[in-house]
């Protein structure tokens, strides 16, 4: 029983948050902060797979998030909202419970496929050159969407709120919040399972000595494919959730600035630590809200903090350690397979 304390705790926390949100104990502002926190956790942990575990320098994570956001939004809008493309919604609101997760999944897949743009060149290229490719990929995604008038171009795309309205018409509880929390949990769980397996450790082997990895039987191309596609796929999931939290997306919200934010979280948390990245995402979200009063100075102060961090604790909050490495007693409370 003790072994399951953490698991039960996590689910209890999710249920508690949902209940608090339902009865308006948590007001809309806190709920939206919590949801963005979840999205940030997915983004930071998934980028950490590439930038931390694999030791690459991907700086275009926002681009993959964008693909996921647009594709899943397009799916739900076509299915559940009046739209300019098909006119009337295809499906009745009661189908949202299947349609929404499915749309998120489709968005993630699309983002994973987009990840190929980076994964394939990574077979031959490393380091700085690959960084540029990720950067270019980010710009390409943004400017491609800017040029697609049918989904709003630079003006953005909306209609996603119909999905939550549909779900609420059946049962009035905070659905998007619940999906976001479950999505966050699922992503971290998936990543955790991957990096702790012998298969997944091949990714770290690539970062530490790629030649040795290749010669000691690690299929490096396959590992890179998995790492990049998993990472960008989860970024796509984060994008899908983000789009349905806001009910509106525009390409500018996924530009280099977004990618930079995600990188900040990864390096704040520590490369190669999932709990570090998650912790950093929480901290970062809170910091962003707490520093709101600084107004334009916010984005002077945050980089400054990170510069100081790099000077005095460059390994980030957690280095490459996990929470359980720092507090071994924690192990008693969860069994992780």
């Amino acid at each position: 029983m003790q072994k399951h304390t953490v698991t039960i705790g996590v689910f209890a926390l999710i249920a508690l948050i949902a209940v608090l949100a339902q009865f308006n104990v948590l007001d809309a502002y806190y709920v939206s902060v919590l949801m963005f926190m979840g999205v940030n956790i997915i983004l930071a942990t998934s980028l950490n797979l590439v930038n931390g575990y694999m030791g690459e320098f991907s700086c275009g994570h926002g681009g993959f998030m964008c693909v996921g956001a647009y594709v899943s939004s397009l799916c739900t809008v076509l299915m559940f909202s009046k739209n300019a493309i098909l006119g009337a919604p295809l499906l009745p609101p009661s189908m949202t419970f299947i349609g929404f997760p499915l749309a998120l999944l489709v968005g993630s897949f699309a983002a994973a496929i987009a990840g190929l743009v980076v994964a394939i060149p990574s077979f031959k290229t490393r380091g700085d050159y690959l960084a540029i490719i990720t950067l270019a990929a980010n710009y390409i995604v943004i400017s491609a969407i800017n040029n697609m008038e049918i989904i709003g171009g630079p003006r953005g795309f909306m209609g996603m709120s119909a999905t939550e309205v549909g779900m609420k018409s059946v049962l009035d509880i905070p659905w998007v919040l619940i999906f976001t929390m479950l999505g966050t949990l699922g992503s971290v769980w998936l990543l955790r399972r991957f990096v702790s397996s012998t298969l997944g450790k091949g990714v770290s082997a690539i970062s530490q000595d790629e030649i040795a990895a290749e010669i000691m039987s690690v299929d490096t191309n396959r590992m890179k494919l998995i790492a990049f596609m998993l990472s960008s796929g989860l970024a796509g999931l984060a994008g899908g959730l983000y789009a349905h939290i806001l009910g509106y997306v525009n390409p500018q919200s996924f530009d280099i600035m977004r990618s930079t934010e995600i990188m900040v979280m990864v390096y704040l948390g520590g490369m190669g630590s999932l709990s570090g990245a998650a912790l950093a995402a929480v901290l970062f979200t809170v910091l962003m809200e707490a520093l709101r009063f600084l107004d334009v100075w916010k984005w002077v102060v945050i980089p400054l903090l990170l510069i100081l961090l790099m000077q005095f604790r460059p390994e980030g909050l957690m280095g490459n350690k996990e929470l359980a490495d720092l507090f071994p007693k924690l192990r008693k409370f969860y069994s992780f397979k």
Partner: peptide
Amino acid sequence: RIAQHYRLGY
């Protein structure tokens, strides 16, 4: 462990 990658079998 990692050097056994080629016969992971999963």
